[in-house]
Each structure stands twice: as C-alpha cells, then as structure tokens.
Nucleic acid binder design. Structure first.
Lengths: 152, 152
DNA sequence: TATTGTTATACTCTATAACTATA
DNA sequence: TATAGTTATAGAGTATAACAATA
C-alpha cells in the first residue's frame, strides 16, 4: 500500500515541540501515569488517590481542605476521593477537635499496612521508569529541577 | 482562630511524593499547562491543539490518523480538534491522493501566519517558565532527559 | 479482512456555584 | 461575614465500540 500522503517510512518532524519543556513534560507524565495505572489499578488506586494517602500518612489530622491545598486541587474534589478511601478502609474522617465544620483525616490500622505495600509497588514502578537515568545524581538533579519548575 | 488540626503554620510533609519523578512531573506539567492556557486561551488554543498545528505545519499532507499516532492520541480525538482548527481557518482537510478514505491535512495561508504569531507567544511563555534553569546546557539536558523518560 | 474518518458513548479529572452548618 | 464540607453541574480530555466507505 504505497501512499505518499502518509509518509509511513518518514519520521514525523516534531518541529518546535522538540524544544518545548511543556510538551516534553506532557509526554513524560503521560508515560508515568499509564504505567502507574497498570501497576496499581488492581488495588483501585490512581496517582491522585495515592497522593492523598501519602499526605494523610505523613500529616495525620489534616482537614480535607488542607490536603486539597497541599496537592493543588479544589476541596470539592476531595469529597469523592475521601469517600472512596474511607470505603476501602484506608483512611477515616474524625470530627475535628476545635471546629465542628471540619473533619480530621487519619490512616486506619489497615490503611497504614496498605500504604506500605502500595508504596513498595510505587517505588518499584519508579525504579523501572527511571532506570535510564545515569545514577543517583541525575535523579536528584531531575527532582530538584522539576520542583523548581512547579512553583508559582 | 487557633486550630490544632489544621497545622496552619506547619509546612505539610510530602513524604514519599518528594522522591517520585511521577509526582514531580505532574506538578510541573500542571504549572506549565495553566500558564499556557492563560497565555493562549484568548486565541482559542489549548496545548493539545497547539501540538496538532505544530505537527501539520512541519509535516504537510499527513492524515488525521498519522497525526494522532505521532501525538500518542486516539484518532477519534482528532475529529473535534481538526473540526475546530478548520473552523478557525488554520488548517484544512484535502482529499488524500491515493486513498479516498482519508484526508490530508495542510495549513491554510492564514494558518501559517497564525502559527508564527502563536509560536512567538509560546516561546515567550517557555522562556518565562524556564527562566530558573541555569543556562542553555541545563535546558538541553532537561529536554533530553524528559524525552528519555517518555519512551516505551 | 483491514483501515479511515466518524459518531455515540462513557469515564476521569477538574473547576464553579450554591447550599448547610458552623465559626 | 467567612469558612468546611457537600452537592450538582459542566467542561475538558481521553478511550472504546461500532458503522459506512474504501482499501
């Protein structure tokens, strides 16, 4: 099927996209996201849910709004996330001590174990995805650079 | 409003998230995406639409499916994108020479000018977003690294 | 049989506005 | 009046399945 209009054998020229950090970030993140989902979907955990658990695990007692602000999400998005994680018996809402409007979020006993096993999987997934980097220095440099690019 | 459960003055501990390239990629990309939208939304151009235009500009005559494959999208998503860009008189569908099933995509005369001005904006946006990087070497290193992390 | 563009559909993610109960 | 959680809703973005025309 010879077809001039498809350039099957010719590589596509990405032009300006090759020099745009924004585009490269999108492709890299898409790759990580897809692999993460394959690795963790059987546990019912998406990247977003994992981030919520990680914050609650390290910061017990935070309110839903505080978690949302830390992750850069809207607080309305937290409702379904916390509903799901509470339904999975991973985290729990407790009435906040000094403010009857808000809940404080805590890991359940099962949730703490679950998070440990989940973290092991995620770390393994990261190791595979970052295997092409040249050593620990390059990894640290990348993490710092991405952090710099995330602010403001 | 003193409230122990909110840790207003205490920084949130991101724990394992700090060491995950996947999470850092997500935050950095979110930042780029938001800024891109602010810079280009008045032109009706999203990051995804910009990518389509960039590919068509550099590879005139590609089919919709070929563009979708290059960008890692499903071909069904191309329909609305090309509809919109054709409605804006930026690109146009022409019957493919050797295959009456497919269209070949080309820039219009106006589209070529539009893309030049749009690119200038995007490059300016990129310059601002990457101003924190230390020189051109670091930028090139980052682009190469992200490309490496995008594959497979 | 396989592929292109298309449509319908659905699912996720995200953000906005409005409501309630508290503060 | 302002805020926390909630609900309803709507807009992107993305993916799947099926169809007609064509290969």
């Amino acid at each position: 099927m010879a077809d001039d209009t498809k350039y099957i054998d010719n590589p596509v020229d990405f032009g300006i996209l090759n020099s745009l950090v924004g585009y490269r970030l999108r492709r890299a993140q898409m790759n990580f996201f897809t692999n993460f989902s394959e690795v963790c979907s059987d546990l019912g955990i998406s990247p977003g849910l994992f981030a919520v658990i990680a914050i609650v695990d390290k910061n017990p007692g935070l309110t839903q709004t505080a978690v949302a602000q830390a992750l850069g999400n809207d607080r309305s998005a937290m409702v379904a996330a916390v509903d799901k994680l509470e339904g999975m018996d991973v985290i729990e809402r407790r009435p906040a001590k000094n403010d009857r409007r808000s809940y404080a979020l805590f890991m359940t006993k099962y949730g703490a174990e679950f998070f440990q096993q989940l973290s092991a999987r995620v770390i393994e997934h990261e190791k595979i995805m970052t295997a092409r980097l040249k050593g620990d220095d390059e990894l640290k440099w990348l993490l710092n650079t991405l952090d710099t690019l995330s602010k403001e």
